[in-house]
Write a protein that binds this DNA or RNA. Structure first.
Lengths: 213, 213
DNA sequence: ACCTGAACACCGTTCAAGT
DNA sequence: ACCTGAACACCGTTCAAGT
């Protein structure tokens, strides 16, 4: 005779995410999760293959939330949008540092999120990169932006910036220089030049596109 | 009566580094290290406080090696030197991915390397950033470079670049755009303009420095 | 002074036995 | 159909007892 379920996969993942943020990955034990959802550890294996599987589910849920956070307005000014995207990225990482770290860290294959969920989360960056740098350089430009933003945030969270100075300033500096570097690639395309607020992005130089090497 | 030591701290750290690369961090157990150096696990605690301490020693040894790998020549052309630095960075990460990952990952405080050893390893980047972007922006420029390089390499190692395309090309693109972005900050300073190979760095535009925001 | 076996607490995971 | 206690293998760590 079936009795009503005492927990659910959603409960388990939610509990795991809370434990991850408060106790870190080593504290994310099956027993801790079980206790929080009100069952014994063996019961978790009805919903989850093993601990690595649970870590993957936590990572994917976090990627999904990140993707939602990164859906920027589309103001018509790609430079401003890129800055907004960068700040949203960083704010998310500050809000759930352990979950963020899980997304971009390498680990056992079973813990890695599926590719298409990652792709969906980075779509806004790709779209903005195409607007800024032109379709030809969109992929490389998006990778440059994502690498920089993720690298900055990871090092910030890891405490790897140890020379003092203002990190907010360094972050703003990066956004500014990155926007300039990606914007100068192609001559102005008028269709994206409407609605720009003066002074928010550096002027375009109209240089010839450089070979991608 | 003292008997001759059957192992040493250097042996232990070396064994741990090999295990880390072949088995990953979860495989780096005290028992595995002990077996490799030819003692029993409890003996390790004569040389090492605990596992976190061993992980820290492994990380610091790796940082030290990275720092040595990053001592670039100083060709007189900061743009070329920056490219060389970036490639050395990436080559090191490819050669020992698990050790590299340990450096820039956040983890329990006891596993983190000392600040001054990290500072020493990043000194070349800071010096080149000063040459390229001028002393005023040296710190922010170095952070931008390091963030980008580390972010790119971390994502590459984590398999987070999943849209296909040529990663070597994306890396070269990043170096090129980064050099351009950092070089355009200040008007030409003649003392650093000697010995440049034409075409290896983008032309300077002589724009006024922008406020750092 | 270093090394070891034994012991303890803890963890992931399986499984037969409960409801 | 879900849940549990018991069990097993494994791990980090301590410590008294060996040499």
């Amino acid at each position: 005779m079936p009795t009503p379920d005492r927990t659910s996969l959603a409960d388990i993942v939610a509990a795991a995410r809370q434990i991850l943020e408060s106790e870190g990955l080593p504290g994310l034990t099956m027993q801790a999760v079980a206790q929080r959802v009100g069952v014994r550890a063996p019961s978790l294996y009805k919903r989850v293959r093993n601990r690595d599987d649970l870590i993957r589910l936590v990572t994917e849920a976090t990627v999904h939330d990140l993707g939602e956070q990164l859906t920027v307005a589309g103001s018509g000014d790609p430079g401003r949008d890129l800055a907004e995207l960068a700040h949203a990225f960083r704010a998310f990482a500050h809000a759930q540092p352990a979950g963020y770290h899980l997304i971009f860290t390498s680990g056992p294959a079973d813990t890695r999120p599926s590719l298409d969920i990652l792709t969906r989360a980075t779509a806004p960056a790709l779209r903005l990169a195409a607007e800024l740098a032109g379709p030809e350089h969109a992929l490389s430009a998006a990778r440059m932006f994502t690498a920089w933003a993720n690298g900055f945030i990871s090092m910030e969270l890891a405490g790897a910036f140890n020379l003092g100075g203002d990190l907010d300033e360094a972050f703003a500096f990066g956004i500014d220089r990155l926007t300039a570097a990606l914007t100068t690639l192609d001559p102005p395309r008028p269709s994206f030049d409407t609605g720009r607020t003066p002074g928010t992005t550096p002027p375009r130089h109209g240089r010839q596109p450089r070979p991608a090497e």
